[in-house]
């Protein structure tokens, strides 16, 4: 069983296989289930992701609070107009990430990757790459297993909870996971996967969890958008041969320690950051008809 990214990469290299193969093998060992059963379960999760993306970019999704919904559709239309500055792949990934989180905010059905608040990044990137790289269904499943392998290391050595480690632990982790999986899908090596994860996560360090009104909407939806774009850029950098000066495992450890030092107001309590801005507070009052207790105390 691998305990960190270094071991994961070494295992894949020594066996001459992909990160996703190592994850599948480990899952077989730990659960005693067959390869077919494990792939079938992942296929179900992939279908849930696919449905959520499709819903978000075609339907008029609106959350109960009215704070989010419809932006993924806007971005798809803009992308198709051909005027996009950052390019079609980027716009597609970003809009599909937002689509997932808009569906999530509307209490729709999603697959947590690794959490619900950060559920947009991995599928957003995957379904945008589907258009560009035409992967097989099996390669798409491999993308999720590779994401899962890196997320597994973060979850066990640091945290994937915003309440414990801030947004860096959620969207940050998802971004690193997606970056690593992009590298594998694009034909990169296991060590390049680790470099991409390190580069992506480094750029998410310190990101706080400050949801307006305590809802997984503002700024969560747009943070997933930025996570998706960050993942693709980090993957491109790693594929170009750029290495992270700080090894991936040490970046994960730094993320964990930063999370421990983060004040509680910035860890999913809706007491600080954007949640505590005048507009953030006004929105909270409007939605709940009265100020949250935490906001009264902060005044």
């Amino acid at each position: 069983m691998f305990r960190n990214v270094a071991e994961l990469v070494k295992l894949a290299e020594s066996k001459g296989c992909k990160i996703s193969d190592i994850m599948i093998e480990q899952e077989m060992e730990v659960t005693g289930r067959s390869r077919e059963e494990i792939l079938a379960q992942m296929d179900k999760n992939l279908k849930v992701m696919e449905d959520a993306v499709e819903r978000g970019i075609t339907e008029d999704v609106k959350s109960h609070s009215g704070l989010t919904g419809g932006d993924a559709k806007l971005l798809q239309a803009y992308m198709k107009s051909g005027k996009s500055l950052s390019g079609e792949l980027m716009m597609d990934a970003v809009s599909k990430a937002m689509a997932t989180n808009e569906v999530n905010a509307a209490m729709g059905t999603i697959c947590a990757t690794p959490t619900a608040g950060s559920a947009g990044v991995v599928p957003g990137v995957l379904f945008a790459l589907r258009e560009k790289l035409n992967p097989t269904r099996e390669q798409m499943l491999a993308f999720l297993f590779t994401s899962g392998a890196f997320g597994f290391v973060v979850a066990n050595n640091a945290s994937i909870s915003g309440a414990a480690g801030g947004c860096q632990a959620e969207v940050g982790s998802a971004t690193g996971m997606a970056a690593a999986a992009v590298v594998e899908l694009a034909g990169g090596t296991p060590s390049q996967c680790a470099e991409a994860m390190a580069i992506a996560l480094k750029n998410m360090l310190g990101l706080v969890c400050d949801p307006v009104a305590g809802l997984v909407e503002v700024p969560c939806v747009k943070r997933n958008a930025m996570g998706a774009s960050n993942a693709i850029v980090a993957a491109d950098m790693a594929l170009a041969g750029i290495k992270s000066r700080i090894p991936c495992d040490e970046v994960i450890d730094a993320m964990f320690k930063i999370g421990q030092n983060m004040p509680s107001a910035l860890r999913e309590t809706a007491e600080g950051g954007l949640a505590a801005t005048p507009t953030g507070r006004k929105l909270a009052e409007k939605i709940f008809g009265m100020p949250l207790k935490a906001q009264e105390e902060n005044r």
């Binding site: 994850m23 899952e27 899962g148």
Partner: peptide
């Protein structure tokens, strides 16, 4: 791995 890629759930927050 399904602790990370999963669960399938109703939004908005896994935790």
């Amino acid at each position: 791995v399904f602790d990370i890629i999963g669960p399938v759930m109703i939004g908005p927050s896994s935790s």
